[in-house]
Design a protein around this nucleic acid. Sequence first.
DNA 1: TTGTATGCGTTATCAA
DNA 2: TTGATAACGCATACAA
Lengths: 363, 363
Amino acid sequence: MEQSRKRAKPGRNPGSVGRTSRPRQAEVAQLAGVSQATVSLVLSARTDGKAATISEETRQRVLDAARSLGYVHDPAARRLAAARNNLLGVFSFTATFPTDVQHSYYPFLVGVEQEAAARGYDLVLFTGSSAGGPDALSRVRLADGCLFLGRHAPGAELKRLVADGFPVVHLGRREELEGLAWVGADYVSASRAVVEHLAALGHRRIVLVREDDDAPASTDRQRGFVEGLAAVGGDAGPEAVLRCADPAGEVTAERVRALVEDGVTAFVAEETDTGAAWRALDAAVREAGLGCPGDVSLGLLGGPPPDLATAPVPMGFDVPRHQLGAAAVRLLAAMVAGEETHEPLVACAFRTGETAGPPGRRP
Amino acid sequence: MEQSRKRAKPGRNPGSVGRTSRPRQAEVAQLAGVSQATVSLVLSARTDGKAATISEETRQRVLDAARSLGYVHDPAARRLAAARNNLLGVFSFTATFPTDVQHSYYPFLVGVEQEAAARGYDLVLFTGSSAGGPDALSRVRLADGCLFLGRHAPGAELKRLVADGFPVVHLGRREELEGLAWVGADYVSASRAVVEHLAALGHRRIVLVREDDDAPASTDRQRGFVEGLAAVGGDAGPEAVLRCADPAGEVTAERVRALVEDGVTAFVAEETDTGAAWRALDAAVREAGLGCPGDVSLGLLGGPPPDLATAPVPMGFDVPRHQLGAAAVRLLAAMVAGEETHEPLVACAFRTGETAGPPGRRP
DNA sequence: TTGTATGCGTTATCAA
DNA sequence: TTGATAACGCATACAA
């Protein structure tokens, strides 16, 4: 099958055969009347700093020869000899490009691609689905290091990679795995800032609407919320956090109205894949006949779902997904280069929005 | 600089060093108590047909050893030795994930990823921006073959790849390069079908609004339009095609009204990145006070821009981007396997929509 | 300043 | 059925 061994008989005469094959350094060398090593030196001359170990004359001869032969590097050989692939892996347990765009990795990938390109790395995309074997993760070792997206990367195998010293970076806080490097958004600070913004406007009774899971992103937001409330001397009673399995079912107009009558002047909801908490809150407030920000102020701990783009912009913060992707690549590149780790948290951008104002009158 | 040569002293004892480095076949061999060549035989056993030149026992020993060491092939070495990588390249001259989502390759990539995964290939994303050198494209040779997106891949280098027998597939019709394989949407047939649909409704005077460039996608649409008109005996006068540098400037309410008074009963616009032609046509008809499909029927040769998703669904066709990506991968895989080319055109799906009806009364 | 020699990890041929 | 061994194209110590 393989039409390999395209070259001439063993050993001899590298230049004479291979009509259809691209020139190698040996042929350039022959034409220029120098050795292959010299060609390598000239052709891979580091642009950075000194490269002056070659006489200008032979340099030109080699360059001319290479040009006239149409020489280009063979990346495989180059990488083999240099012992690096210049390849960074991107692994997502689900498809990297889901048809359901709702929770796609696209925004992260923008930053990942930019940063990788800037550093001269190419990207290898691994999909968890593509090879179902138990050692599916070991394929990633083909890259110099690997970035993991999503929360589904199996812990055991990740642990193995880390233990072997393979450079791994997880996108999103993930501390239960000892020694796993990660990069995440600083939800705590950002959420606290939202509370502080409300407090500065005069609010003291604020309620958080969150879903009933224990994703780190949710936990962090709640922590920031509580911290913020404490810092401003706000009222963090037991009812300050509304934790509901189905926000739409539990955050009703009556509930909201009752809370407002009880003195609550502002609500914040956490951002999730589906935007369920924010949708439920928004609908309940509207249905309760409350004006925003006239009667109540609203905050969203994250960005609004894309289909609500035309609605009033919620006060809150934007998750810097591009920057997160870029930061992850920076960290990974540093690890590949054997350097030390760095600050894993990326700041979110506060968004003033249009849904927060001074506390309204109580109805 | 390069901390290559990481391994132990020349020659000896491959297994004892390299704690942080990926295992090679030699180490697997040592652990399994066989030679490196045997490992290669076992690990690259072709699944197709016979692979039975190794005893089942040593086979298992090797497999176990490889697994326990977390062995994976080195893509560079594998490629250098003239074997295959199971790596398919995806090259886009512009960023694959542009911040400007307008013309992103995302929909194609969905299909590309699915089909690649189904065939056991991983994807390497080569970003054009990373290396501007004259051999920027040569990096793709690391993969077994490469898919090119967008119209910006420099012809000279593409030609070189093709001439060297490197498997290349271009996404989108591209015939000016002799021997370049491509996969594209069948805009001609789809556009003709739109005209025929209008003709079946009774229309005879139809006008095409297109932009003033010569992209193959535009040319194909016009060709289908003209063919369709001819086939149904429609009136393809010199004014049947409105070719304008700035549709918004030239497709005005007056113009449309004049055409309608002259007997035109239907308009079709081409789809572009920006959707400019369709926007202009839609606005002009609306401003002319014409009802659709009451007074005039409209067709769109492609899909509507995402921000017009709430507007009435235009009659026309959908470009099967997923399928295009998948078809491109299929073709590329076939070329890698040394098989022959196939049908390059993928059919578009007709979309009935809500903007076409019987010809209206003339005002 | 340039050439020689060797290794990078894999595949493939051939002999045992 | 398995083990040596020779490429593959390039980079790089080291010698000249």
